[in-house]
């Protein structure tokens, strides 16, 4: 099921410059949501909702966690919602989330910038059987490291300028990991050039890779068909919809 409801904000924390961490009481959405899905949030004064990926689902407490970056005027308005206020949410959305294998399998998780939040539940699932590689512009943009460390995964932090963790891109760290082991699954979310690089490296080695994509979205449900991405099925190019065919896709399907 999907729901359209006003949900109270239990907690709001600033994580880094322009990045906010919200804990929302939304029991129906938490019950229905799976890892990799998203919600569509009303920005007061704006026409279109803003799609935000789900960073955490707690069915017992009936909460979802949303971590997002202020990118424009719409997300700025959403970031002005405070504890005790309601957030107007449609969700959970997305026809396909991340597919989680048995916990004993080995997984490598790669997140770039604001692409890191939706991957956290994957790290929590695999725990010490996961390697998490996250990359950010610089130290002041780094988020969620404590959460990833708490998951039990091996955590590798990269920054473009070397102000935190190691200097360089996540793809460099990934190539070193892949020299040492061949994981069962790779999961990635982040900017398109990063996803393209990750997909090429992993698919060349025959590793199953899932990527979470984004595109400018309308309804978020599959009614308006605006959020297309280029994919291929049976050697035929297909314009899939991020909202209902994804947001998670098999990397081998995506025409990067």
């Amino acid at each position: 099921m999907k729901y359209s409801m006003k949900c109270p904000v239990i907690r709001k924390d600033p994580l880094a410059r322009g990045i906010y961490d919200y804990l929302i009481y939304a029991p129906q959405i938490a019950e229905a949501a799976v890892c990799g899905q998203f919600v569509n949030i009303k920005a007061e004064g704006f026409f279109l909702r803003r799609p935000i990926s789900i960073c955490g689902i707690d069915r017992e407490k009936g909460t979802i966690r949303l971590v997002f970056e202020v990118r424009g005027d719409g997300t700025k308005v959403i970031s002005s919602i405070n504890e005790g206020d309601n957030m107007d949410i449609v969700g959970p959305l997305g026809g396909k989330g991340f597919e989680l294998s048995d916990k004993s399998k080995r997984a490598v998780i790669i997140g770039g910038g604001i692409g890191t939040p939706p991957l956290l539940p994957i790290a929590e699932h695999y725990g010490r059987n996961a390697v998490v590689i996250t990359g950010f512009r610089s130290a002041d943009a780094v988020i969620l490291q404590k959460d990833y460390i708490k998951s039990g995964a091996d955590v590798i932090l990269c920054t473009d300028d070397g102000t935190a963790g190691r200097k360089g891109f996540v793809t460099q760290a990934l190539s070193e990991v892949l020299e040492k082991e061949t994981p069962d699954m790779v999961y990635a979310c982040g900017p398109m050039p990063m996803l393209r690089g990750v997909a090429k490296m992993c698919l060349d080695k025959g590793i199953r890779t899932q990527v979470s994509l984004e595109e400018r979205m309308g309804c978020g449900l599959g009614g308006c068909l605006v959020c297309v991405c280029r994919t291929q099925k049976n050697d035929e190019e297909v314009y899939s919809h991020v909202c209902k065919d994804g947001p998670v896709f098999e990397a081998e399907e995506v025409l990067f």
Binding site: F47, E215, G218, C224, L225, V226, V228, V238, Y239
Partner: peptide, 23 residues
């Protein structure tokens, strides 16, 4: 029909522009 390449939608004051192209 595959329709047009993305982006296919843009926010506007009190509305939006779309160019799906009959997918």
């Amino acid at each position: 029909r595959n329709g047009n390449l993305p982006p296919r939608i843009a926010e506007t004051p009190m509305g939006c522009l779309n160019s799906v192209g009959l997918q």
